[in-house]
């Protein structure tokens, strides 16, 4: 069964018909040709399909596209300002925050969303004082990014990149 939906992806508005079973990830990749969001596990376990959905980091593999009619999606491809990389993208380059690069677009979107959560004062599982302003220690970064796996094991670089992006 098909449904017509409207999505804004990286600043471009699209109207498309999707099968009601189509995930947001498949709609992006297979229907709109936006391949920045990656299909890793397709079961919400790896984080490689992470985008910013209406401003917050979000998986696209466990989301039916039809349920997000009218939403705004920003993928890692839409973060740069023309030729100027987003500070998080630049930090990943500066610190080798990847090896094969497959998980990187999801990692980058996750870091962007996570830093915004920190700015809003959100605590994490490892935050000692739930009511204090969060202090983004390495343990905090590791915990807050635990939803993004990197099978190459580039975590040291991702950690360093996140530290740089948090202070830039």
């Amino acid at each position: 069964m098909d449904a017509s939906i409207r999505l804004t992806v990286d600043g471009t508005e699209h109207v498309l018909d999707v099968d009601t079973r189509t995930t947001l990830l498949d709609a992006l990749r297979e229907r709109l040709g936006v391949t920045s969001a990656k299909k890793g596990c397709d079961h919400g376990q790896c984080g490689s399909c992470t985008v910013l959905l209406d401003g917050r980091r979000h998986l696209t593999c466990l989301a039916l596209a039809v349920a997000y009619d009218g939403s705004e999606v920003v993928t890692a491809s839409g973060l740069a300002d023309g030729e100027d990389l987003h500070p998080v993208q630049q930090a990943f380059l500066d610190h080798d925050g990847y090896q094969c690069g497959y998980c990187t677009p999801g990692q980058v979107c996750s870091v962007v969303g996570m830093l915004d959560e920190v700015k809003q004062g959100h605590a994490s599982h490892v935050t000692e004082d739930l009511e204090a302003e969060p202090d983004l220690t390495d343990d905090e970064i590791r915990e807050r990014l635990s939803g993004n796996l990197c099978r190459c094991g580039a975590y040291r670089g991702i950690l360093a990149a996140t530290r740089q992006a948090a202070t830039s």
């Binding site: 992470t50 998986l59 989301a63 996750s110 605590a123 939803g147």
Partner: peptide
């Protein structure tokens, strides 16, 4: 703020679950 201040077990349980992405969803 009320959950964090008056029901810390609730905040802690939520933050122990899933990932940052999934908790938004």
């Amino acid at each position: 703020p009320v959950v964090r201040g008056r029901l810390p077990v609730l905040a802690r349980a939520l933050l122990a679950g899933a990932s940052g992405q999934i908790r938004h969803q």
